[in-house]
Design a protein around this nucleic acid. Sequence first.
DNA 1: CCACGGATTGGCT
DNA 2: GCCAATCCGTGGA
Length: 201
Amino acid sequence: MNPQKKLPRKFYTRDVHVVAKELLGKFLVRKTGRIFLTGKIVEVEAYDGSIDKAAHTYGGKTKRNEVMFNEGGFLYVYFTYGMHFCSNVVTGKLNEGSAVLIRAVEPADGIDQMAINRFGKNNISAFELKNLTNGPAKICRAFDIACSLNGIDLTGEEIFILDSPKLSANKIAASTRIGIKKSVDLPWRYYIKNNSFLSRK
DNA sequence: CCACGGATTGGCT
DNA sequence: GCCAATCCGTGGA
């Protein structure tokens, strides 16, 4: 697929692990007013609705997780720990219940606005830059993503993902997922090796 | 009705 | 390295 082109529905309706790995290196774009905030996706986790006890959809459909049962290409935003939002890209077929959690991005465009969203100022240190979007809830703060965007169509204008060349397999690493208590041994966290904006090594 | 705990973060010991 | 912050969906009584 061509660089700088918005990913179409059919990109998202495939297997969650395929989509998760191919999302690495692509650009998350958030339009707020006239400003575009963009960042390269460098770390994700796959949640497979059918067999994954850690997936929010494992126990069946509820009001909270119903967006995750859509077909691929919608945004699932959930609220957790009383103060944080996390963003997921829904994947697969209708009622499959699979999604990819976006855990870290490398800031690209609109960094000043991201810094304001996250730290309340646009003059940030090198440390703060690295700390801007290297975690799932940090991304939501910097990109101004909250529950009002839950269920939004990723093929629309407000938030979407731009294509870029597929990374070769040797640039991608896999590990167990972070922060979960169920299915802890599944190696379903994927990230770009040696990228300095990862949430962890 | 009420208690529990979570796909996290950041501040304090 | 440990733990509080802080909300609300969920599930059990």
